[in-house]
């Protein structure tokens, strides 16, 4: 904890959990999609579902999907901006009894038909946890530079990835492997201390059995 955790963040109100955190969940989803989305389906659970209109949680999530941060003045006009930018969106409510009360599931589609689904929770003070990515369990905060690497579940793949990270003199702060079924697709989530060089991503992408590398800068 540092002093800016207490005197901060700078954010659009009214709620650090229901507004600022919601922007950040939307932004992570947009970063994972990589391209400009044309369609967004957002399912809100728990307290998000109950109070989202009063807290502007809908505007916050759309703002994040449009690439805005929690302190961006355009957050409150995000629904109009979405219309201008050709983003079609729909909100629904969903029951997720085992999820955190402030949870949203965001499904994005880009102009080429590529899609991604992110489940995230706003856990207080503007902090978030991404708990699912394309139906696979995960667990990262977005506060650190993060690499998300879907790969084939083949021996040596993790060692090859972490060796490249080590070669770039970066320390791994957190590592998680999600593997629904042995031998099929698995996902590594790697949080890095400090900032990553862009060429590491292209090197990682060239590794055998690595399907994709998504790089999320800290936000």
């Amino acid at each position: 904890m540092d002093i800016f955790d207490i005197i901060g963040p700078i954010m659009i109100g009214p709620s650090s959990s229901h507004t600022a955190g919601a922007v950040r969940i939307g932004k992570v989803c947009r970063k994972i999609l990589g391209e400009k989305p044309v369609r967004a389906e957002i399912a809100m659970a728990g307290s998000f579902a109950r109070t989202y209109k009063g807290h502007g949680t809908d505007k916050a999530i759309i703002a994040g999907i449009l690439g805005m941060g929690p302190g961006d003045e355009r957050v409150r006009r995000s629904l109009e901006i979405a219309a201008d930018e050709g983003l079609d969106y729909a909100f629904t409510e969903v029951r997720l009894p085992r999820a955190h009360p402030n949870t949203a599931v965001i499904h994005l589609v880009d102009g080429h038909g590529a899609e991604c689904t992110v489940q995230g929770a706003s856990v207080g003070g503007g902090n978030i946890l991404i708990t699912k990515l394309n139906q696979i369990d995960t667990d990262f905060s977005g506060r650190h530079d993060t690499l998300i690497i879907p790969h084939k579940d083949v021996p040596g793949t993790i060692a090859a990835v972490t060796a490249l990270v080590a070669d770039s003199h970066k320390n791994i702060g957190n590592f998680r492997l999600s593997r629904p079924t042995r031998g099929y697709q698995a996902v590594m989530t790697i949080e890095i201390d400090g900032t990553m060089e862009p060429d590491l991503v292209s090197k990682l992408k060239q590794l055998p059995n690595v399907i994709n590398v998504v790089y999320l800068p800290a936000n």
Partner: peptide
């Protein structure tokens, strides 16, 4: 009130209490 109107504020320490300090 500005916070409730989706204005830009500094959480200090939270958004709900952002007016006091």
């Amino acid at each position: 009130e500005y916070n409730a109107a989706m204005g830009k504020i500094v959480a200090a320490p939270t958004a709900g209490s952002c007016g006091v300090l």
